[in-house]
Nucleic acid binder design. Structure first.
Length: 643
DNA sequence: TAAGTCACG
DNA sequence: ACGTACGTGACTTAT
């Protein structure tokens, strides 16, 4: 019997704040689900494992099963610290069991002993042969690692299945269950509460916990049975799922676990220096404004600049207020003193609050290192996303910001190696478009921006001026982003007509690129998605929208996605091969960070020569494109020196 | 919780 | 006529 839920109740729940996790829900799902009949798992058979006899019976089933869905319940979301509270299993749909191990509340029934039970389950958990399925098993693998168990035999993951099929949609289990099964699952908030009143899962009543946890395993199994045939039927998706995403997950686990060493003292010193300068700048700003105000408040800055001082409004924010962003302040700084002070203040405040103050607080007490979290199913293009802390946006473009990188260090006897793909997206554009001129430039290992400038300005590479090269570089980047003449004009600070002329000249010289852009847009319109070289798909629901702005946005995304996405595929393949190589060669070198086109490693001094000679070749040869790939490698005592 | 801003590729 | 380069995460203020 299926339970029909009140739709408004359910809507309210969707609007509840989702704890920041992989795959937040988007409002879009609301409408989609409105047409779906909403069911629940109220009829399913969920068992609680409390006795040795019940455990032995389940272990026998686990050992006999071809595939087991596994899920853990824990004390928290910090993967390096969270401890196991219980785990659930499912082998057949509508049947699942919850094994509570560490619930603690007054009157809690006797549970099986945590350590003894883990010891009993260890052979199965660590067996490569016994296949496991789950939703985001990278998380569960961390939890088991915290208890000294190496979870092996990960065969499938519904998070990655959903991501490969529909990267643009949400992948949290509640959304997946609703979208694919028409089932309204019990949310974590329903079980543990929300906000300040949220309780730890070990406080949750055993019956409620069983209902929730067993359902997770059951639903994940059902999702897998629905999703995996949709992947298996399509060679490209199958390749991306089996040969890229699943193995990449294992590498990400290792990298998150490795963490990176920080020189916290150096950051503290920098924080102090920044703090002193910020106080000076604040005083100068108040003086220039002839009144005190909060320099961190765009609203107050806006009032000072545009109401009180009557400076000209250069542009508006999306909500219609006068913008005070960097571009505006730069322009105003040419004529007035205060904007320049604000710019300096903003730059330093950003460095202090986001980096020098925050990073030392993120050092894990147990390991002494910083462990980021890599989200594998967030970026629609196939890229990773790093958070808590984000190690993919550590400053590098400004000299002051670069100093932050001096705090990313190697321990004594080791060094930091950074290996980055040179011009990766432009090389992919050359490959995808097959444009003869662009391919030629890369085949000859030319400076591609210089070569482009020579073509556009009809001169020889040797005679290209610095300014011409800068223009060409902006144009090349613009092409990757699906730019318009307006965008290019703004970026270069020139007339729109002039920008249009440059674009025309570019396409005249690189006709293959123009044809590729046209056919990509057309392909997106026809089939609703575009693909990377390796068959990853990006869907573009708004490509045929009647809203011109939405449609054009989708067109730009369609142009960009194959290039950004192929680059993401390539570096994931590189990570997989590098990690495999490190393991087979028994090296102590560790992968510690990925920044989209760059891998960062911690390398013992005695392995440095080998890494320097082998790593670039390994990374270059992960795929055979029509352009050569080039990897630039640097090393040093810290991340800054390694560039 | 949203808006504005800014760090990265 | 309208807004305008792709993809992310985090901090701060203000509602």
């Amino acid at each position: 019997m299926f339970e029909r839920l009140n739709f408004k109740t359910w809507l309210r729940e969707l609007n509840m704040p989702v704890k920041k996790m992989e795959a937040a829900k988007v409002p879009e799902q609301v409408e989609e689900a409105a047409e779906t009949e909403i069911n629940s798992t109220a009829h399913a058979q969920y068992q609680k494992i409390l006795t040795d006899a019940q455990l032995e019976e389940w272990i026998a089933r686990l050992l006999a099963a071809d595939l087991v869905c596994l899920d853990t319940e824990t004390t928290g979301l910090d993967v390096m610290d969270a401890r196991l509270v219980g785990m659930s299993f499912a082998i057949t749909p509508y049947e699942a069991a919850y094994l509570p191990l560490a619930h603690r509340y007054p009157g809690v029934p006797d549970q099986l002993d945590l350590d003894a039970t883990l010891a009993r389950l260890r052979p199965w958990l660590e067996s490569e042969q016994h296949k496991k399925l789950g939703q985001n098993l990278k998380y569960d693998k961390h939890i088991f690692a915290n208890h000294g168990i190496a979870l092996r035999g990960i065969a499938d993951d519904t998070l990655l299945e959903s991501y490969v099929l529909e990267s643009h949609k949400s992948h949290d289990m509640d959304s997946l269950a609703l979208r694919h099964l028409g089932v309204k699952t019990i949310s974590y908030e329903e079980v543990a509460g929300r906000g300040a009143k949220q309780i730890c899962f070990d406080q949750v009543d055993l019956d409620i916990a069983t209902r929730y946890a067993a359902e997770d395993a059951d639903i994940t199994l059902q999702l897998h049975q629905t999703l995996v045939p949709q992947i298996t039927g399509q060679a490209g998706l199958q390749h991306v799922y089996r040969d890229i995403e699943l193995p990449a997950m294992q590498v990400l686990f290792v990298m998150e676990r490795n963490g990176v060493l920080l020189d916290s003292n150096l950051l503290h010193v920098q924080s102090h220096e920044l703090g002193v300068k910020l106080i000076e700048l604040e005083a100068r700003a108040h003086e220039a404004a002839e009144q005190p105000f909060n320099l961190n408040s765009p609203k107050q800055i806006q009032e000072i600049l545009f109401d009180k001082l009557k400076l000209p409004v250069k542009k508006k924010t999306p909500s219609g207020a006068p913008s005070t962003d960097e571009e505006v302040l730069q322009e105003l700084a040419l004529d007035y003193p205060l904007p320049k002070i604000l710019l300096e203040y903003r730059g330093m405040a950003k460095l202090k609050s986001t980096y020098t103050d925050k990073l030392p607080k993120m050092v894990n007490r147990a390991t002494g290192r910083v462990h980021t979290s890599y989200a594998q199913a967030v970026a629609v293009t196939g890229r990773l996303a790093s958070s808590d802390p984000n190690l993919q946006n550590i400053p590098i473009r400004s000299v002051e910001g670069r100093r932050i990188r001096e705090a990313f260090i190697a321990p004594p006897g080791s060094c930091i190696v950074a290996a980055d793909y040179s011009q990766i997206e432009l090389r992919i554009m050359a490959h995808l478009s097959g444009d003869a001129g662009l391919l030629q430039a890369f085949a000859n290992n030319e400076d591609v921006h210089r070569a482009t400038a020579a073509e556009i300005f009809m001169t020889t590479p040797a005679e290209v001026t610095t300014e011409q090269r800068r223009y060409a570089k902006v144009i090349n980047f613009g092409l990757i982003y699906g730019m318009s003449a307006f965008g290019l004009a703004r970026q270069l600070g020139i007339e729109r007509g002039a920008a249009q002329a440059y674009i025309a000249r570019y396409f005249a010289r690189y006709p293959g690129v123009r044809d590729y852009m046209d056919s990509t847009r057309e392909q997106a319109r026809q089939q609703g998605y575009v693909e990377t070289v390796f068959g990853r798909r990006l869907w573009l629901p708004e490509i045929n929208s009647s809203n011109a702005m939405k449609r054009q946005g989708a067109e730009r995304a369609a142009i960009n996605a194959p290039m950004q996405g192929t680059a993401a595929d390539l570096i994931k393949l590189a990570m997989i091969q590098v990690q495999r190589w490190l393991e087979t060669e028994n090296l102590k070198t560790r992968l510690i960070m990925q920044v989209h086109d760059e891998l960062v490693l911690e390398v013992p001094d005695d392995e440095l020569p080998l890494i320097k000679t082998s790593l670039p070749g390994l990374m270059c040869h992960v795929a055979n494109l029509n352009v050569p790939l080039l990897v630039e490698l640097g090393s040093g005592k810290n991340w800054d020196e390694a560039h």
